[in-house]
């Protein structure tokens, strides 16, 4: 049976090409789990899954893991799914928030071939960006927004092109700040949670995940005999359905952009020139708080 497992794909991608290639998946929610599973089904056989959350009832409706996994860590539930399709895979699971243990994340990423960022927190994406740049490990970022009516996929290859902060700068995400009259309830302790949790259909999220999986595959196969043709630009915008605000005009709208590096980026191009005060001078002159 084992010999037949990859018969239908090995003429396109022989799974042996992935030997020794470790893929770290950060966030295995409704998007990340499909992303990881698609790669496992393409023959990738070494995963590290990171997610602090357990499957709760509201996750089930758009997660490949169903009611039988309710209450399990998402990493463990997705591990079972991966092994169910690719029994040769090595899957390590870690249930922690990457913002809580940056040092441990560094050790997990250090020997990785690729990181998949299925994160929904902006500080976490920026933290990962810096750590992966230092480790010189490529990262694929995928996100849905506007209720998963649209989404984006892009990659950061250290030393080549923009980093995550450059993308964020180019996309001018601050441009929409002052365009609403909706009041915020400052007394609502759940405000942050409500504002950072987004509704969306599983099928809309999965399309973005599949695009991300394909970009991951292209990245992993670069330089091998199974190398796939490249794609235009470095940023993919996908629209699932027409939107009233005009952002997406038709179903299944795909746009490729080339996002340039930000020449003044403080993260990937930190200023190397000397300033009048060195770090040691600054520390020596710090004023103690009275």
């Amino acid at each position: 049976m084992d010999k037949l497992l990859f018969t239908r794909i090995q003429e396109i991608v022989n799974p042996n090409v992935f030997c020794g290639k470790k893929v770290v998946v950060i966030g295995v929610g409704s998007g990340g789990r499909k992303w990881a599973l698609s790669l496992a089904m393409a023959g990738v056989s070494w995963f590290v899954l990171i997610d602090p959350d357990k499957l709760s009832i509201e996750n089930i409706i758009r997660h490949i893991c169903g009611l039988k996994d309710l209450g399990c860590y998402k990493t463990e539930a997705v591990k079972k799914q991966i092994l169910n399709h690719n029994p040769h895979a090595k899957v390590d699971t870690h249930n922690f928030d990457i913002m809580d243990d940056e040092e441990f994340l560094k050790t997990l990423i250090a020997d990785a071939s690729l990181v998949l960022a299925g994160l929904d927190s902006e500080p976490a994406r920026h933290a990962l960006n810096r750590i992966a740049l230092l480790a010189k490990v490529p990262v694929i970022y995928a996100t849905t927004f506007h209720r998963a009516f649209c989404g984006e996929v892009f990659r950061v290859i250290p030393g080549k092109g923009p980093c995550y902060a450059c993308y964020a700068h180019f996309l001018e995400r601050t441009g929409v700040v002052e365009q609403t009259t909706k009041a915020i309830d400052y007394n609502d302790p759940q405000m942050d949670e409500k504002l950072s949790t987004s509704p969306g259909l599983g099928m809309d999220i999965e399309i973005i995940s599949l695009i991300a999986a394909k970009i991951s595959l292209i990245t992993l196969l670069e330089g091998t005999k199974y190398e796939m043709p490249s794609y235009p630009g470095n940023y993919i915008f996908w629209g699932n359905r027409p939107m009233e605000n005009g952002l997406v005009s038709q179903y299944f709208e795909c746009r490729f952009w080339h996002v340039p590096r930000n020449e003044n980026c403080l993260i990937c191009q930190p200023e190397k020139e000397e300033w009048e005060q060195s770090y040691d001078d600054i520390i020596a002159n710090l004023v103690k708080d009275e």
Binding site: D120, S121, E122, P123, R125, H126, R130, F145, A165, A168, H169, R173, T174, V176, V177, D192, L195, S196, S198, L266, I267
Partner: peptide
Amino acid sequence: KKVGIYNP
């Protein structure tokens, strides 16, 4: 946190 007003 969702869309990134702050950019380090």
